[in-house]
Write a protein that binds this DNA or RNA. Structure first.
Length: 257
DNA sequence: AAAAAGGCCAACCGCCTTAGG
DNA sequence: CCCTAAGGCGGTTGGCCTTTT
């Protein structure tokens, strides 16, 4: 049995929005705010589901949207952010005022990807294409180790950054602390490419204590942190891997230092 | 001029998390 | 706890428009 899609109970409109529908939604939200999205269509006199209304508002009707094409500065920023955040379009959009995750995603898929390829840059790894292909095809493990090495060297150069521990070995390197812990399946599940790091908070905690739920917090030298059981997870802005942050973190705001 | 191919983008789909009962 | 509904997200699709053959 398939999953029910939104609006399964009634026959609701789908597809492109008419100017009349736009006006109804705009008028309603301007006057009352959206409140509970699921009740918006009824109150606004629309035969749409709440999700559809929300999307239309966010992507098209919101008054603070910037119209028109992307500037080269915006494109460069998107490339930089994508290299750090991966395909977290909503978080990238949060750094580009007036732009939506949907249009950034579309721009990436339709234009930026191709431009990077033309320049000989792999859009997935942001490395030169030849290097990226060699790394992935011949020895992915080696490529991963090299990346880790590069990351750790990069981090050591900046004394203002916190002490970090590679999740793959779970060795804590903060101050005098030097705890060892074995890998768990949870580590591997959440951090498949080993590029997330932890900052130790207390001597008594072990990595096993920090799963599975995190709460978002901030750290002056990180883009994403979370703490649990005296531990704090730090995803460094230069090492943020693609698709390796636990899903539980995804919906929290990432705050930039 | 017509058909095919490609590009673009709005909107949908399905999954996940969260909140509330 | 468990269940359900809502909200949010990223991936994907479908259709319109433009370019190429």
């Amino acid at each position: 049995m398939g999953r029910r899609s939104c609006g399964y109970k009634q026959k609701l409109r789908k597809g492109l929005w008419s100017p009349d529908e736009d006006e109804k939604l705009l008028r309603y939200i301007t006057k009352h705010g959206h409140g509970c999205w699921s009740s918006v269509p009824k109150l606004a006199g629309l035969e749409r589901c709440g999700k559809s209304c929300r999307l239309r508002w966010i992507n098209y009707l919101r008054p603070d949207l910037k119209r028109g094409g992307f500037s080269s500065q915006e494109e460069n920023l998107i490339i930089q952010l994508q290299s750090v955040l991966g395909n977290r379009w909503s978080q990238i959009a949060a750094r580009l005022p007036g732009r939506t995750d949907n249009e950034i995603k579309n721009l990436w898929n339709s234009s930026i990807k191709k431009k990077l390829m033309q320049k000989g840059v792999d859009p997935n790894t942001h490395k030169p294409l030849s290097e990226a292909m060699l790394s992935t095809s011949k020895c992915p493990e080696k490529a991963s180790r090299e990346l880790d090495t590069a990351i750790s060297l990069n981090l050591k150069e900046d004394s203002s950054k916190p002490s970090l521990v590679d999740v793959s070995s779970c060795r804590i390197e903060k101050g005098d602390d030097n705890l060892n812990a074995s890998k768990t399946s949870a580590h591997q599940e959440f951090f498949p490419d080993k590029r997330a790091f932890f900052l130790s908070q207390t001597k008594n905690s072990t990595p096993e204590h920090q799963y599975p739920r995190f709460q978002a917090g901030t750290s002056p030298s990180s883009i994403a942190t979370s703490s649990h059981g005296g531990w704090q997870m730090v995803v460094d802005r230069q090492t943020r891997p693609c698709n390796s942050i636990p899903r539980t973190l995804r919906q929290h705001d990432i705050k930039w230092s």
